[in-house]
Simulated scan of single mutants.
Amino acid sequence: MRAVVTAVAVAMLAAGCSATPSHGGDGDLTDDWAPLPAPAALSPAVRVCHARLAPTASAVDDQPVGCGEVHVSETFHVGRAPDSDVPPAAGTAGARSAYSECSEAAVDFAGGDWRTARLAVHVVWPTGKGWSGGARWFRCDLTQTDLDGYGQSGRTGSLEGELTRPSPLRLGCFTPTVDGETVTEMRSVPCDRKHRAEFAGLWQAPDVSYKELEAGTDRSAAACRSVIARFAALPDDSDMQYRSGWISYNPTRTEWLAGERRVRCFIYFAERTLTRSLRNAGPSVLPVD
Rank of each mutant, 00 (worst) to 15 (best):
V285M: 09
A223N: 11
G128C: 06
A93W: 11
Y249L: 09
G201T: 15
E271I: 09
A14E: 13
M12G: 08
N280H: 14
A11P: 00
H50V: 05
T273F: 06
P283R: 11
L42D: 10
P44Y: 07
K211M: 10
V10L: 15
R139P: 00
W131I: 06
S209G: 13
T143D: 07
W114T: 00
D62T: 10
A89E: 14
S277V: 06
L274A: 09
W114C: 00
W256P: 00
P126F: 03
R96N: 08
K194D: 08
P206E: 08
E271D: 15
R165E: 05
A200W: 06
V121F: 00
A98Q: 12
A120M: 08
G111Y: 01
V123Q: 03
G245C: 10
Q241W: 11
S284L: 08
V78M: 05
A215M: 09
T127N: 04
E104N: 10
A98D: 12
P55K: 06
F266H: 12
A117H: 03
R2L: 01
Q152N: 15
L171C: 04
S100H: 14
P88T: 04
R47S: 13
V5S: 15
T177K: 12
P283F: 10
A110E: 02
Q241C: 14
G149E: 01
R193D: 14
S188C: 02
W137F: 13
L213H: 08
G25T: 01
A93H: 14
R139H: 02
A15K: 11
H23W: 15
A223H: 05
L53R: 07
A90P: 14
F266I: 05
G201A: 11
S153L: 12
G259Q: 04
W203H: 11
A135R: 00
A34L: 13
T275V: 15
G201N: 11
T254A: 15
G154H: 07
V60W: 06
W203V: 05
P168T: 11
S220H: 09
K194I: 02
A95Q: 02
V208S: 07
C191P: 05
R264Q: 08
P126W: 02
V285F: 11
P55A: 10
M186C: 04
V124C: 03
R272Y: 04
C173W: 04
T177P: 03
R272G: 03
V72S: 06
L159E: 00
T56D: 04
S158L: 02
D218W: 08
V86E: 09
D83A: 11
R219Y: 11
L169N: 07
R118D: 01
T30A: 15
K129T: 15
R272D: 06
E198F: 01
S277P: 06
V124F: 01
S158H: 01
A40C: 09
V288Q: 12
F76P: 00
A229S: 12
E212G: 14
D31Q: 07
G91Y: 12
D218G: 12
L119K: 05
A221Y: 01
R155S: 14
Q152W: 10
G112R: 00
V285T: 09
R196F: 02
S238T: 15
W131L: 07
V263H: 03
A105P: 07
A54Q: 13
S277L: 06
R136A: 00
E74C: 04
V60F: 06
A14R: 12
T75I: 05
F269V: 13
V183D: 06
T143W: 00
P55I: 05
L147W: 08
I247M: 13
D148W: 06
R219H: 11
T20P: 01
G24K: 12
V60D: 12
